[in-house]
Design a protein around this nucleic acid. Structure first.
Lengths: 137, 137
DNA sequence: GGCATTAACTTGCGTTTTGCAAGTGGAAAA
DNA sequence: TTTTCCACTTGCAAAACGCAAGTTAATGCC
């Protein structure tokens, strides 16, 4: 992982992006933050079933290093940290929207998260703009 | 890897997509096919420096199994195979376009492939449509 | 026909990354 | 003061990756 991807700085835009979120989890983390407004380690860990704690820690660190998220102490709960998407991270909204539309078209076994799909289909600009501005619950 | 991703069939559209191309190479393969019109194993292997032969074989197989590419014998050269994007694969064009735009905005160390970036910026619809129709050199 | 070549992989094997479980450290609630 | 909570680490086995070398089958050339 990290910038060790041979193509990370090959100048190819796709390779650059993959060096940042080209793995199984990073985009899911971004999705949870952007769409669901999740912003602490434990919420991310328990939010969906699957990711293991060491991998989450590793990914968050990488996302922080590559400028997708920031990490600060929660001013209202000094033992907790708050993760937030940067502008760079929120600007992934259109990428996420296109992926959602593509999956909506081809994943016939779709049963959950149709809410998000419908939202994107209905008013994609509003979906993207709300994430871009950080208007999450 | 394959559909063993815990979230592949969780119903989340992002997870579905990541189960198909959520790795370091798959989207680069799609890019080479969609943008550059590359369609044989050896071209893919030598096209950019980096991917190793076993990984390429594995990825192509997975992309075939998940309906992104097809594999047929080249009718004009029977020892060669031709890989082609399916409609499902070509429909990744908007995803690729958004990734290119995002990287174009944030990868300051960009030096190569600006041609593709410019093309997408200039006339994105045309970029997407030409891929969707399979109009590649 | 025989031999070198090309295309597309496969196999071995050492390194790296992942996944699961258990443990750590510090703040704070009881 | 003991327990709980939060955010991680650490250890270790299993899976995936990356490199190099080998395999198979179809040409190409003589």
């Amino acid at each position: 992982m990290k910038a060790k991807n041979a193509n990370y700085n090959s100048g190819c835009p796709i390779a650059y992006a993959l060096g940042i979120f080209g793995d199984q989890w990073s985009l899911l983390i971004v999705r949870d933050m952007a769409v669901k407004g999740v912003n602490t380690y434990s919420e991310l860990l328990n939010g969906w079933e699957g990711i293991s704690t060491n991998i989450l820690a590793q990914r968050l660190k990488h996302l922080e290093e590559t400028g997708i998220v920031t990490k600060k102490r929660d001013p209202e709960n000094w033992r907790s940290f708050v993760y937030e998407l940067t502008q760079k991270g929120r600007d992934l909204a259109p990428v996420i929207a296109e992926i959602v539309l593509w999956s909506g078209k081809y994943n016939t076994a779709d049963h959950a998260m149709t809410g998000t799909l419908d939202k994107v289909r209905m008013d994609r600009k509003q979906f993207e703009d709300s994430i871009r501005k950080g208007d999450v619950p």
